[in-house]
């Protein structure tokens, strides 16, 4: 089973979801992110989902939960590069991502986290 790397640049953790996200993989990733957050004390979490074509309600929930958990640990989450089809599915599922800010691409997401709280 592949593991998704959690990269740290300055104060921000960057996670790029590149493979089809099985439920277990998503939960493992959540663990990895949270433990890295606690180890490094990063202030921001940037989730890049550019290459994700399908988000089901479980993955959506895991992403929302992870953001809420990261917030509790003092990090703000930005979701970058969501595909239109995925956005439609999520809005039709009625899934809300209240703790998450969104960005059109990785660069804009990084800029959002670097300029700090808005």
């Amino acid at each position: 089973m592949p593991r998704i790397p959690v990269l740290k640049i300055k104060d921000v953790l960057i996670v790029s979801l590149q493979v089809e996200m099985q439920d277990r993989l998503a939960l493992e990733l959540q663990d990895d992110i949270l433990s890295t957050l606690s180890r490094t004390g990063a202030r921001g979490l940037l989730l890049d989902v550019t290459s994700i074509d399908v988000v089901d309600s479980f993955l959506g929930r895991v992403i929302a939960d992870t953001a809420s958990m990261a917030r509790l640990m003092g990090a703000e989450t930005v979701l970058a590069g969501l595909q239109p089809a995925v956005a439609i599915t999520l809005s039709e599922l009625g899934l809300k991502l209240p703790q998450i800010r969104t960005a059109l691409n990785l660069e804009k997401g990084l800029a959002m986290l670097e300029t700090g709280k808005s």
């Binding site: 979701l79 969501l82 956005a87 809005s91 969104t102 059109l104 691409n105 997401g109």
Partner: peptide, 12 residues
């Protein structure tokens, strides 16, 4: 509303 939500998910 759905359209607006979806656009916001993209970062717009």
């Amino acid at each position: 509303m759905k359209t607006v939500e979806a656009a916001e998910l993209l970062g717009a």
